[in-house]
């Protein structure tokens, strides 16, 4: 979505009623964020909405980007939020070979997740359940981590359910939403 460098458009304040709505929506989408939400977007603070190209809206608090949304698609977290609260999102892991493709903005393909270095939910090689026990459906928002790294490198929307991915092991797995080093990552807010 943000392969090219982007520049921020107009910035406007979010109505407090709309702010409540956003907050509720985020909590509905990421229930595990409940305990952190007060730190991420305190009730009293004024959120800003920054318009980005291609009808993407970015919600910010001061000059820290928090979440972004393309039209009425699911709200996605900015990677800095993911880095701060890694436990609050459903996670998958890709193998080492796939990292460089992801970081240059390619669509994530299934083999990167199904190979020995990758992790999907309910993986036999993941006894602690770090990557969850429930299979994820297509359309869910996932955070992509990488083999041998601690921090996440991408946020995206699954195009195929994880159960099916395990069966076919082919094709696109996840639309690149926001990855390390993309335009949104490089965006500086004045």
């Amino acid at each position: 979505m943000f392969k090219k460098d982007i520049s921020a458009g107009s910035k406007s304040k979010v109505k407090s009623s709309a702010q409540r709505g956003i907050r509720a929506k985020i909590l509905e989408q990421y229930p595990k964020l409940e305990e952190h939400i007060e730190e991420i977007m305190p009730k009293k603070e004024q959120l800003d909405l920054v318009k980005l190209p291609d009808r993407v809206a970015l919600y910010t608090l001061g000059s820290t980007p928090l979440f972004f949304q393309h039209m009425d698609d699911p709200i996605l977290p900015h990677l800095t939020i993911v880095h701060k609260y890694p436990d609050a999102f459903p996670r998958l892991r890709i193998d080492r070979g796939a990292i460089r493709f992801v970081l240059s903005g390619a669509t994530l393909m299934a083999p990167g997740l199904t190979s020995p270095g990758g992790r999907l939910p309910n993986d036999p090689e993941d006894p602690e359940g770090r990557y969850g026990k429930e299979e994820l459906e297509a359309g869910e928002v996932v955070v992509i981590e990488a083999e041998g790294k601690e921090t996440a490198c991408m946020v995206g929307v699954l195009t195929v359910g994880t159960a099916e991915m395990k069966k076919t092991k082919k094709g696109q797995a996840c639309d690149a939403g926001h990855y390390l080093g993309d335009g949104l990552w490089g965006l500086t807010l004045g």
Partner: peptide
């Protein structure tokens, strides 16, 4: 309110990525 502290991440001053990923930049 849970008192969990947000994880602090250092970002590289040159390429702005987390240092782990520097090797993938130029």
């Amino acid at each position: 309110m849970a008192e969990s502290v947000p994880k602090q991440i250092t970002y590289c001053g040159v390429c702005s990525l987390p240092p782990e990923y520097c090797e993938f930049g130029g």
